[in-house]
């Protein structure tokens, strides 16, 4: 299944390239040709962005998950004031385009707090806040999708609020939210390309830098796109694997019901 998808993606890429070759465009694949010295140096340079992209993605996913989880607790609380804070947070951070919040954190925030931020932490902060609003909504939706009977059974057994959440509700909610969380992971990975504008040396930034010295944007950005494609395919394969492992018991229960 997975291998088939990868093949299909590669096939499409090849077709596009062939189509390109047929046009009057002069191709200059030598800039990223691993068979020649210059191409090898360029490829290494382009791929040196990958660790940064991965690191930034991991940091953003981790922070936005933690933050989103904490914020979602406000949305699940019974107090009106907690709801208002939750709504406010989600609406604000969801509405600001991530590029704008990157600029705001990098150029604006230092003026406000009088401390300069490096590009990496600035980008991380901006994207994590943006992502956390979505994560909060995912977690809240997951918890609210759990049947009322689960809360009621917990209550009549004498379990308190925190025990009910910890042992009964969250494990089920997390399982149900997994596809949405995986989706968010892929989106976050691609969104890290935005921080190229403030100079984090991640995949797109490397491409930009090379494109202006080599004057070969078509070939270079094609390779940049390929890098994201490969990264995303790896991430989605991982998410599917996790889903299969965590969802196995729910599927078993589904089977028993239909038997």
């Amino acid at each position: 299944m997975n291998r088939k998808r990868l093949l299909a993606a590669l096939l499409i890429t090849c077709l596009l390239l062939l189509a390109g070759c047929a046009s009057s465009q002069q191709w200059g694949w030598y800039v990223v040709n691993p068979m020649v010295h210059r191409g090898r140096i360029n490829l290494l340079f382009l791929m040196s962005g990958i660790p940064w992209t991965i690191m930034l993605t991991l940091c953003c996913v981790l922070i936005s998950n933690l933050l989103g989880f904490l914020i979602s607790l406000l949305g699940l609380a019974e107090q009106r004031i907690a709801h208002l804070v939750y709504r406010g947070y989600v609406e604000v951070f969801r509405s600001i385009p991530p590029l704008v919040s990157i600029f705001w954190v990098y150029y604006g925030l230092p003026i406000l707090i009088d401390v300069g931020l490096e590009p990496f932490p600035a980008g991380m902060l901006a994207l994590s806040l943006y992502g956390s609003a979505f994560m909060a909504e995912i977690f809240r939706g997951g918890v609210q999708s759990i049947e009322r009977g689960q809360f009621e059974a917990s209550r009549t057994l004498g379990l308190g609020y925190f025990d009910t959440m910890r042992f009964v509700i969250f494990p089920q909610a997390l399982r149900r939210s997994l596809p949405a969380i995986g989706n968010q992971l892929v989106i976050m990975l691609k969104m890290t390309s935005l921080v190229s504008v403030i100079g984090v040396s991640e995949v797109l930034r490397r491409g930009n830098e090379l494109a202006v010295t080599e004057y070969r944007p078509l070939e270079i950005y094609s390779f940049v796109a390929l890098q994201y494609l490969v990264l995303v395919l790896i991430v989605s394969a991982g998410v599917r694997k996790l889903e299969r492992r965590m969802g196995s018991d729910e599927r078993q229960s589904g089977r028993a019901v239909t038997e």
Partner: peptide
Amino acid sequence: FQQFNLFPH
């Protein structure tokens, strides 16, 4: 309960 409400996980 009518619907058992066991913890499925």
